[in-house]
Design a binder for these strands. Sequence first.
DNA 1: CTGTGTGAATTGCTTCACAGCT
DNA 2: AGCTGTGAAGCAATTCACACAG
Lengths: 257, 257
Amino acid sequence: MTTPPETPPAAPVAKRPVPEATVTRLAVYLRLLGEFAENGAETVSSEELATASGVNSAKLRKDLSYLGSYGTRGVGYDVASLQHQLERVLGLDHHQSVALVGVGNLGHALAGYAGFAGRGFPVSAMFDVDPDLVGIRINGIEVGHVRDIEAVCRDRGVTIGMVATPGPAAQGVCDLLVRGGVQSILNFAPVVLQVPADVEVRKVDLAVELQVLAFHVARRHVAGGSDGAGATASARAGGTNDGDMNVGTNGSVVSPR
Amino acid sequence: MTTPPETPPAAPVAKRPVPEATVTRLAVYLRLLGEFAENGAETVSSEELATASGVNSAKLRKDLSYLGSYGTRGVGYDVASLQHQLERVLGLDHHQSVALVGVGNLGHALAGYAGFAGRGFPVSAMFDVDPDLVGIRINGIEVGHVRDIEAVCRDRGVTIGMVATPGPAAQGVCDLLVRGGVQSILNFAPVVLQVPADVEVRKVDLAVELQVLAFHVARRHVAGGSDGAGATASARAGGTNDGDMNVGTNGSVVSPR
DNA sequence: CTGTGTGAATTGCTTCACAGCT
DNA sequence: AGCTGTGAAGCAATTCACACAG
């Protein structure tokens, strides 16, 4: 019976895996840390931050443990320092440049979304095919023609693309973004985008969100009264790779004005 | 008000739990079934539908198995019949009435989102606080004042509320929706809403989506990936709009104007 | 023989509970 | 004491692989 030496050699600074589900929450913690900082807090405990985020404190601590030990036992986490670490892990210290394709109804709203520029994601390029839209300026950015996507993205070092076109056009512009060197795509069109393995896609499908909610309404009818299956007051987030969709948290929405 | 006991007739159909993650995908399958139907398909195999949905076929079969056996071994699933079953499970046979609060930048786009009305979720009420917005009509619906949320929701039997207000206003309108009898809420505001246990909340946070993508971009840098190389890229990106995959009618999202 | 339906194995995420630092 | 960091237990979801229906 040869007992394998079991030598976990080297593996010095082994990259931490950081679960997908955790990454989604890190962004939420970061936003809340900003609020704590505004209120003048120097430190937060896992309990405080967890409650504000709508998760339990053990989960929060485990999430933070993936990025190292930045808390002080018996005290809590230093707000400023933790903010800094989260920004680093989330890649917010690298400059991210965002391109938006499709400046119609939804795209126009996304272009003006205060939560993007305000949180480190200025939209630096926009595209459409409609002659009425190509050439206009939104927030100081001129809308280009879709045919220029590849060149412009390469030129400006765009790392993230947002697709807000009608479904039938989505795969085409996706291909153009990929050829322009875009590594991550946020897809609002109701299609499953085909991309090379090294490109990350996240999908936001509003109709699907409503259908999931409709399911719960229907479920409640069947269940009749109290089924007691209530989660507290948190939202669900799930999914990851492939054609999965997901919701996250954070962002300042739009002012009704 | 008191719903008659609705005597579940011995509940012969021992309802299986239907995992949360599955529900999300069922909505996706339903949309794709619509496209297959448009193309005149009578039946689909799990393999075909799975590929189109971006999941693997075993997962798809397991998902469908939660709602019973509606496939034919050796053949596949009857498209029309499966559509019907999915609609039933997702509660789309019940009439869903949707209210939208916050008709600003994003809210306005949501109001005009073709994917809602086209998929069984007509927005039947809208609200805001801005005097410039209250009273105007969007898609034939008059925007009411936030103070009337409770009464109007009750009156029109609204089951789903969408919150697209700025963060600070979100909890307040959420409370009003709940008092108006709304059972499910789709939250676009960057706050964690507090609701009673019998109300379901889903959160869509656009800034978080971008942060998750940014994480993957940063991660790739660390991994030092050999750039370039499109592995399994797919479609061609010709000069002109090549969005003519087999998307039938269904897919109109936001029309670029 | 084809393709569904499903127990069993696996993987990944969450929760628990407590050792150990301050 | 108080609170973090983390092994280990507990769940939930995904994948495997194959019996069985048409």
